[in-house]
């Protein structure tokens, strides 16, 4: 039995390579889902969502309803003219520009995404688990599985709070777009701005998918650079430092570049002026570069084969 609790005997050698990959993949997924890091990240995300939901309910929704009651009782001419219903996006963590919880979530975003599985390759190598695994399967199969599971783990832990947030918001806010009169829309050049007003739930889904991808990328960056650091803590906070360096460092020095930094455009509350094509190009480049460095770093992984 390995240190991590997963026996390498679980691998069932098969003539078909696909079967082996599937087994490794299944084991890695189980490992990830049962890891303490995954639980910590999910709990952290849920705590932020619950605090945020409470904040929105108490500070935005209830005062808006109270204002309506007061106005309905007033006999003054046109007193209701500046009242509008709060839309679902007002209560969505991903788009909240009023409380600090959105800023907090995106501040810890790279940390949350690496906690579950970002350090797994480092741990496997240091614990010796990797030698046992590579005795039963090929290095390529192992690395591909690790790559995919790490990506999924990072994606899940950042997407789950966003999904939970839209679900809790749906319990008290209708799925209508934010009223133009609320002046909370931003410019017409922001990403998916049409969906923002007309299909708010789809808008939230699109940004959740984008966040999933970048959660995965941050986790991959961590697993990729973990070979460079003797201290695993350094590897774990590397994506966090990189994200802050690009958004708050480089982004502020080169003003025009700020909108092209992922840490900036994945946050829908910032209404970043960027096109879908630019987002796709940046994502492909970042993912491609991470994959390339991952390959370079681990292609000569020591094996017992």
């Amino acid at each position: 039995m390995s240190k991590s609790g997963y026996s390498v005997l679980q691998f069932q050698r098969d003539d078909k390579a696909g079967r082996v990959v599937k087994n490794i993949f299944k084991i890695e997924i189980k490992k990830m889902l049962k890891s303490k890091g995954f639980l910590i990240s999910i709990i952290l995300g849920i705590v932020i969502v619950l605090l945020h939901t409470r904040w929105v309910y108490v500070n935005l929704y209830v005062p808006n309803q109270e204002l309506l009651e007061v106005k309905l009782q007033s006999q003054e001419y046109g007193v209701l003219d500046d009242w509008f219903e709060c839309g679902i996006l007002l209560g969505w963590l991903g788009n909240d520009g009023f409380s600090l919880y959105n800023a907090l979530f995106y501040f810890v975003f790279p940390i949350i995404s690496v906690i579950p599985y970002g350090m797994s390759l480092y741990n496997d190598m240091n614990s010796g688990y990797i030698s046992s695994v590579l005795a039963k399967c090929s290095r390529k199969d192992y690395l591909v599985s690790k790559y995919v599971v790490t990506f999924i783990s990072g994606g899940i832990v950042v997407a789950a709070p966003l999904i939970l947030s839209i679900m809790t918001a749906a319990c008290y806010l209708p799925a209508v777009g934010i009223d133009l009169l609320a002046m909370k829309g931003g410019s017409n050049t922001a990403l998916w701005h049409g969906l923002f007003y007309e299909h708010p739930v789809l808008y939230a889904v699109c940004f959740t998918v984008l966040n999933f991808i970048y959660g995965g990328i941050f986790a991959l960056i961590c697993v990729t650079v973990s070979k460079w650091f003797a201290n695993r803590f350094m590897a774990a906070i590397f994506p966090f430092i990189l994200n802050n360096y690009t958004t708050k460092g480089l982004g502020n020095v080169f003003d025009e570049m700020l909108r092209y930094t992922p840490g900036y455009f994945i946050n829908s509350s910032l209404n970043v002026n960027i096109t879908m094509a630019s987002v796709m190009i940046i994502t492909v480049v970042v993912l491609g570069l991470t994959t390339f460095i991952y390959y370079i770093n681990y292609r000569k992984l020591e094996t017992l084969e």
Partner: peptide
């Protein structure tokens, strides 16, 4: 949950 969401949307003050 579904009933709650349905009611919220049905009673939206638009």
């Amino acid at each position: 949950y579904v009933i709650r969401v349905y009611n919220v949307n049905k009673n939206a003050l638009l």
